[in-house]
Design a protein around this nucleic acid. Structure first.
Length: 131
DNA sequence: GGCTTGACGTTAT
DNA sequence: CATAACGCCAAGC
């Protein structure tokens, strides 16, 4: 699998995250069959974040600690992500250091690969499948 | 070629 | 519960 396919797999998986739910980079990596590629999931997502018009709900992907990754003090990306999450009704905790955290126990979405496959039938989109 | 970096994860203090 | 250490793999330099 080259980087392009990896990106496509990531987008395809992230797109299936239900509304008002969040998941982690690591779980996305597991779903596409590459448990140790968590960092590259983020790498793929940042490639489409400037768009914000893509069908990929990138804002629903956070790290295992449930916090929105910084990506640079001067950038407003994290801020936009918090806005998007709250817009969906997801509760975001703000710390004193400006750390934005989501309760994974409440909003987390961690299905198995099989469950995602069953969701695939419900979606019935014209997306070319993998494997 | 090696060294550093990064929207990360897990385990141990 | 907050920090630290270690592991991980592609990309850029």
């Amino acid at each position: 699998m080259d980087s392009a396919e990896f990106h496509a797999a990531v987008y395809d998986t992230v797109r299936r995250i239900p509304e008002c739910r969040v998941t982690t980079y690591g779980h996305i990596a597991k779903l596409i069959g590459m448990p140790n590629y968590s960092r590259h999931v983020g790498q793929a997502l940042k490639f489409l974040s400037p768009e914000t018009n893509s069908p990929v709900p990138w804002h629903r992907v956070i790290n295992s600690a449930g916090m929105i990754s910084s990506r640079g003090p001067g950038t407003n990306g994290a801020q936009r992500q918090r806005e998007a999450l709250e817009a969906e009704g997801i509760e975001v905790t703000i710390g004193r250091s400006g750390d934005m955290k989501v309760d994974l126990g409440t909003w987390g979405w961690f299905p198995t690969r099989n469950e995602v496959a069953s969701l695939d039938e419900a979606v019935e989109e014209s997306s070319g499948d993998e494997s």
